[in-house]
Simulated assay, not measured.
Amino acid sequence: MKGVPCPACKKYAMNRVRLRWQCPFCHERSSDDHLPALFYLALLSENRITNKSAREFLGTDSPEVIKKLLQRAPVIRKGNNKGAYYKHVDLMKYL
């Protein structure tokens, strides 16, 4: 399932509101609930996350928001400009 799951009610998908993730059902708010979702995306994509794939998976339209989320996440950037992709550090020794 795509999106960021709510840690409180376990429903999908949280929305990005004012620098935080907010659940539309129980109104739980958090700033780092996207980290497990990025880990699952790395598992599904053979540890190759692009800005576009992260936008589609997390349900966010803004490339700038995803860029900032990826800069703060436990990922390593490979490549430059349009060819850039990210590898999750927890999966680098396995994939």
Rank of each mutant, 00 (worst) to 15 (best):
C26N: 02
W21E: 05
A8Q: 13
D32C: 07
M14L: 13
S31W: 03
W21L: 09
S30D: 14
G3H: 10
H34A: 08
A54W: 02
V4H: 12
H34W: 13
L38D: 05
L44F: 06
A8F: 02
A37M: 11
S31T: 10
T50W: 08
T60P: 02
S45V: 01
P63T: 00
L70G: 01
R16D: 05
D61L: 12
P63A: 06
L38I: 01
K2H: 12
Y40P: 00
E46W: 04
T60N: 09
F57S: 07
I49Y: 07
R72M: 11
I66P: 15
F39N: 01
L44I: 00
L19K: 11
R18Y: 12
L41Y: 11
Q71M: 08
V17F: 09
Q71T: 04
M14E: 03
S30E: 08
R72G: 05
L38V: 01
K67Y: 07
Y40W: 11
R18M: 05
E28V: 09
A73F: 02
D33E: 15
Q22M: 14
K67E: 06
L38N: 04
H34K: 04
K68I: 00
H34M: 05
Y40V: 06
V4E: 11
A8P: 00
F57D: 03
L19T: 07
K2Y: 11
K68G: 09
A54V: 03
L41N: 03
A37K: 02
K2F: 14
A73S: 13
L41D: 06
S62R: 03
C26P: 08
K2T: 13
S45D: 09
Y12V: 00
C23I: 00
R29I: 05
S30I: 05
L69Y: 00
A42M: 12
L69T: 00
K67R: 10
C9T: 01
L38R: 04
R55H: 07
V65A: 13
Q71C: 04
S53V: 05
Y12M: 14
R48W: 01
R18G: 15
K11H: 10
K11V: 09
W21G: 08
C26R: 01
S45E: 13
Y40Q: 10
D32Q: 10
L19D: 12
L41S: 12
A8H: 05
L58Q: 04
R16I: 06
